[in-house]
Design a protein around this nucleic acid. Structure first.
Lengths: 146, 146
DNA sequence: AATTTATTGGATAAAAATGTCCATTATTAT
DNA sequence: ATAATAATGGACATTTTTATCCAATAAATT
């Protein structure tokens, strides 16, 4: 469904969000993030860089540096934002059978069957906020690792 | 969503089904299939081999040989069968965030949001038959290429 | 100012997916 | 039997994705 990079990106964002929610002015190091979500450190670094450049997370260099998210913005960051930043819009516009062009006028054989599912997925991604996902983790109801 | 191999596999199956439906005892050559669905010939060959080994399509060697499907079985072949044969069951059981274990007891943060969508997808794949997809192509309503 | 710390960015490596080539095998027709 | 045809199977090549390494940069502390 998502690329590995995107999976790491979502999990990392949730972890950073959680830490930013619990302590103010918290800065989470790359090492801590990677450990918390069970991802390769250097690879995770690249993904966090991308998220930082797209202003989804903040990053600060130097001692006491690390990654963080604006607590007051956590309800504005949607899952769709992260997915789009890392995987692009294939999940929305891509054809289920890989045709370059596939639309109402010239649909692939599964176009209509996929339409509903894809729209549901889109809606879900666009309405699910990072804060809501973070809550589950904070309350020990959901998990970011294993 | 699906691998490229799986996309080719589905499109190829539909094309072979269509030809088998229109002419009896038809044998479609690899070349014809690849041309009809716009896929690389040699790569498509591998995929058809896999489908043939799993009895989803028939293959016959020699002159007049080629690929075919049993006309009377076309309503029994489900999209899910092809997808499972080529891509395995990741699409059903795999975690949306890539966790090795993810279930009701220890769900990932998006587990519940994905559950509905995944079940809908599963149901769709399990209820969509090759014959129904073939009809659309036969009637010029849907397309296998471009 | 010097040292330490942590992210950044570029190069490179490893793995997986996609794609190609060609000799072999099975089958049909002559 | 021989030749022609079409799938098969194995090796190989390319591309994309995933992952690693390390020097450079920026910031904080002493």
């Amino acid at each position: 469904m998502f690329s590995k990079a995107c999976e790491y990106g979502i999990r990392a964002s949730i972890y950073i969000a959680k830490r930013s929610l619990l302590e103010k002015n918290s800065r989470v190091s790359l090492k801590e993030v990677a450990k918390a979500i069970g991802s390769p450190e250097a690879y995770t670094s690249k993904i966090l860089q991308k998220l930082a450049k797209n202003n989804i997370i903040n990053s600060d260099k130097g001692p006491t540096g690390g990654f963080s998210m604006d607590k007051l913005e956590l309800d504005k960051v949607k899952l769709s934002t992260i997915v789009f930043t890392i995987d692009g819009d294939d999940i929305y516009k891509g054809c289920g059978l890989g045709l370059e062009e596939c639309n109402e006028q010239m649909p692939c054989p599964v176009h209509n069957q996929f339409k509903t599912i894809r729209e549901d997925l889109k809606t879900m991604l666009e309405t699910t906020t990072i804060i809501s996902l973070t809550m589950g983790v904070k309350d020990g109801l959901t998990f970011l690792k294993r």
